[in-house]
C-alpha cells in the first residue's frame, strides 16, 4: 500500500490542526534521533528535508521509523511508506510528506 502524494506538501501557513499536532510529535522524535543538541537553531517545518536540512543519515531514519512504531504501533508503517522509493528519494523526503502520511494512517485507523 503506497499513497502517492505531490512532493510539495502543504504550503506554509496552511498547516491543518491535526498536521500541526503530528508535526510537533515528529519534531520531538527528530530531536531524539539527533540526541537533542543539534536541533538548537533549527526550526522544523513541513518543508524541512531530512537529508539536506537536518543532515540525517539513512541509519537515523531507521531510528526514526522505530520511534514512529513505538508511538503509533502498526498503524503507521514507515518501511511500507517508503517501500517504493529509492534510498536517495527517502533521504530527500520533507518532514511534511511524513506528517501527511501519519495523518492519513491515523485517519484510516479512525483515530483522527
Amino acid at each position: 500500500m503506497t499513497t502517492i502524494r505531490p512532493s510539495g506538501s502543504a504550503p506554509t501557513g496552511s498547516v491543518r490542526l491535526d498536521e500541526a499536532a503530528v508535526l510537533a510529535e515528529l519534531t520531538g522524535m527528530i530531536g531524539q534521533v539527533l540526541d537533542g543538541y543539534e536541533l538548537d537553531d533549527t526550526e522544523i517545518t513541513m518543508e524541512t528535508r531530512f537529508g539536506r536540512d537536518l543532515e540525517l543519515e539513512s541509519i537515523d531514519l531507521v531510528t526514526l521509523a522505530g520511534l514512529l512504531q513505538d508511538r503509533y504501533g502498526s498503524t503507521v508503517n514507515f518501511a511500507e511508506f517508503v517501500a517504493s522509493m529509492e534510498l536517495e528519494e527517502i533521504i530527500g523526503l520533507s518532514v511534511g510528506r511524513l506528517v501527511e502520511h501519519v495523518c492519513l494512517c491515523l485517519k484510516a485507523e479512525g483515530r483522527d
Binding site: 543519515e57 531514519l61 531507521v62 521509523a65 534510498l87
Partner: peptide
Amino acid sequence: DSLASYYFTVAPAFAAAGLDVVMYD
C-alpha cells in the same frame, strides 16, 4: 554502510514474503 541499506531496499519485501528478517549494524 549500515543496516539501512537493507531496511530501505529488500528487507520489507523479505518479511512480506514470510521470512524472519534479522538486520544488524
